[in-house]
């Protein structure tokens, strides 16, 4: 935030203070409204007799966590999720970094149309193409395979990742590379030894952003994976529903907290590292 220049006359200072008070009040009201829905999940997770209504945990207990922390309910879905989203993020990053290099370094009459297509593809409603993707996966025998799901998840994240990575790469001065070229390095060597080390912070932003997106994605694995032992955490959360008749709300809440944890922790890491509003605003300037 920039420091506001000194304001001229006194009445304005008074009005500024009143304005700030009103702004703070408005912010707190909105913040309160945003927090209320979250109260239930925290209260219910520690409640031995949780239902849908919010109540102070009675008795206070870790039983819900104890009940869900087993291979079947938590560890395997989490591991599956890690495999799918980690694998997807890896594929996305490799594809995005390689693609960003020529887009950032060479001018060609193909660059602009390509980038516009990429930008358009970032907005493609993935939900709309899941039906044909299912049909395609059945035909080429990729349905219910981790590999197929990883590849599709990676591809769905590619357009925005390429876009962001290219923007970050544009920030690395080309002069450094020219020196390397003079010394006989190939473009790929320059990319590996000069650009990548310099744009490490930017790449971690893109990678974390991609991972969080995939981790929360429910529809893609829901459609593409069928066998229970391959389902990631986002889909297996539905096992708390119906299967045994009644929903065990306390356990559902405990599981929700555990499942949300990686995304929240990664975001906190990102925010700390880059001071909050990380620079995807730049990509949306239009």
């Amino acid at each position: 935030m920039t420091v506001a220049p000194t304001r001229p006359v006194r009445p304005r200072v008074a009005r500024g203070l009143a304005g700030r008070g009103a702004a703070n009040l408005a912010l707190l009201v909105v913040g309160f409204a945003f927090v209320i829905p979250m109260v239930w999940v925290v209260a219910a997770a520690f409640n031995g007799t949780a239902g849908l209504s919010v109540s102070w945990p009675q008795p206070w207990t870790f039983d819900n966590f104890r009940a869900v922390l087993n291979v079947e309910t938590t560890y395997r879905p989490m591991l599956n999720g890690l495999l799918l989203c980690g694998g997807g993020t890896l594929v996305t990053m490799v594809g995005a970094v390689l693609a960003a290099y020529p887009l950032s370094r060479y001018r060609s009459r193909w660059s602009r149309p390509f980038l516009l297509t990429i930008l358009f593809a970032t907005g493609l409603p993935i939900t709309a193409i899941m039906v044909p993707v299912y049909g395609l996966f059945v035909q080429i025998n990729l349905i219910d395979t981790v590999l197929g799901t990883v590849l599709f998840m990676a591809t769905s994240a590619l357009p925005i990742s390429i876009w962001l990575t290219k923007n970050f790469m544009d920030g690395v001065p080309v002069e450094l590379e020219e020196a390397a070229w003079t010394d006989g390095a190939s473009p790929m060597q320059a990319l590996r030894h000069i650009i990548l080390p310099l744009m490490w912070p930017g790449m971690s932003v893109v990678a974390i952003y991609t991972f969080i997106g995939l981790w929360g994605n429910f529809f893609v694995p829901f459609v593409l994976l069928l066998s229970n032992d391959q389902l990631p955490a986002s889909v297996s959360i539905f096992t708390f529903f119906g299967q045994y008749g009644e929903i065990v709300y306390g356990q559902l809440a405990a599981y929700s907290l555990l499942y949300s944890l990686p995304a929240v922790v990664l975001y906190l890491f990102l925010a700390r590292r880059l001071g909050g509003a990380f620079n995807f605003g730049g990509a949306v300037k239009g």
């Binding site: 909105v30 913040g31 945003f34 927090v35 829905p37 979250m38 239930w40 999940v41 219910a44 849908l52 919010v54 969080i212 981790w215 929360g216 994605n217 429910f218 986002s234 959360i237 539905f238 709300y249 559902l252 809440a253 929700s256 499942y259 949300s260 995304a263 929240v264 975001y267 925010a271």
Partner: peptide
């Protein structure tokens, strides 16, 4: 708080609002 609501997986957000 606002970003927290955004970072939560959509299924979890669904349950929160269901409750």
């Amino acid at each position: 708080v606002v970003i927290g609501a955004w970072v939560l997986p959509e299924v979890v957000a669904g349950y929160l609002w269901l409750a």
